[in-house]
């Protein structure tokens, strides 16, 4: 018999709208809280995974643009990075929501097609968009720093092999840049993951009481008047997920450094403050 079986059946997928429609309203058991807060983690993981995935590509493009000699590529990239690194994510969420609701409801006419806009105000899209832009600005800064520290010898060696242009970038510059940036990027990923807790505390409304871990934690803290249970449960989930995240990034790090002697020892995770 699994403990909390009934609660898991009712609430394990509540945050995505599957299961019991009404949240528990009285007699809040520990099972209730653990299950529902865990259910909320689905959103935190969704936001973190999607933002890191899309942000990674955008960040690479931004880093290259920032290192470009042409001011037409460099200046916009620098402005973007300054805007998103220079202001609090919390304010970015508020502003994004206020701005997104101003888009015409019926959609925008583009060359005969109607582009729907209403989905952008939903947290799954709007907040994700903010998170993608935010993390790509921070990551671009990290990647740019790494790009600037790619050893000159590596580039000269590539030249000697006759590599130029895209082939040189893809086979020499980019892998070295990733290798150099990876520890800091791990750090950024952790920061981003924790930032997902802010989504439902800022401008974005909860839809049908589907929220993230902290949304349910504060729901319980408000109903039970006891912050000493719900918040530590949420904290526990975050610690677990962070450890998994560090593990995954460690695997990637080993792959990036697989040609180096001693690399099998793996990533010695050193917390840094590079955000």
């Amino acid at each position: 018999m699994i403990p909390c079986a009934e609660d898991i059946g009712n609430y394990a997928l509540r945050s995505v709208g599957i299961g019991e429609r009404l949240l528990p309203r009285s007699d809040f058991t520990l099972c209730n809280q653990v299950t529902l807060i865990g259910s909320g983690m689905i959103w935190n993981l969704y936001f973190a995974a999607m933002a890191l995935f899309f942000g990674f590509f955008l960040a690479n493009a931004l880093a290259v643009a920032k290192a470009s000699r042409s001011p037409w590529a460099r200046k916009p990239a620098e402005g973007f990075v300054f805007l998103f690194r220079g202001s609090p994510l919390f304010i970015q969420f508020f502003l994004a929501y206020q701005a997104l609701v101003m888009l015409p409801r019926a959609g925008i006419e583009v060359m005969g097609f109607t582009v729907a806009t209403s989905w952008l105000t939903k947290a799954w899209a709007g907040a994700l968009l903010v998170l993608i832009l935010n993390t790509s600005a921070y990551s671009a800064q990290i990647f740019h720093g790494a790009l600037m520290s790619v050893p000159k010898g590596d580039l000269e060696a590539a030249d000697a092999y006759g590599l130029t242009g895209w082939a040189k970038f893809r086979r020499v510059t980019w892998p070295t840049m990733m290798r150099l940036a990876w520890p800091s990027y791990t750090n950024e990923a952790i920061f981003l993951f924790q930032a997902t807790a802010l989504v439902f505390f800022s401008g974005f409304p909860a839809f049908q009481q589907r929220g993230d871990a902290l949304y349910y934690a504060s729901y319980f803290a408000d109903k039970t008047f006891n912050p000493f249970v719900a918040y530590p449960i949420a904290a526990g989930y975050f610690i677990l997920a962070t450890l998994v995240l560090i593990g995954l990034f460690g695997v990637a790090n080993r792959r990036l450094n697989r040609h180096l002697p001693g690399a099998t020892r793996g990533l010695k995770y050193r917390p840094q403050l590079l955000r």
Binding site: A217, P227, Y231, P271
Partner: peptide, 19 residues
């Protein structure tokens, strides 16, 4: 020093003042 690494700061902010 390790505790803030795994837990979002906002959880501490909701928790510490009440405690």
């Amino acid at each position: 020093t390790a505790m803030v690494r795994g837990v979002p700061d906002i959880i501490f902010f909701l928790f510490v003042p009440i405690a």
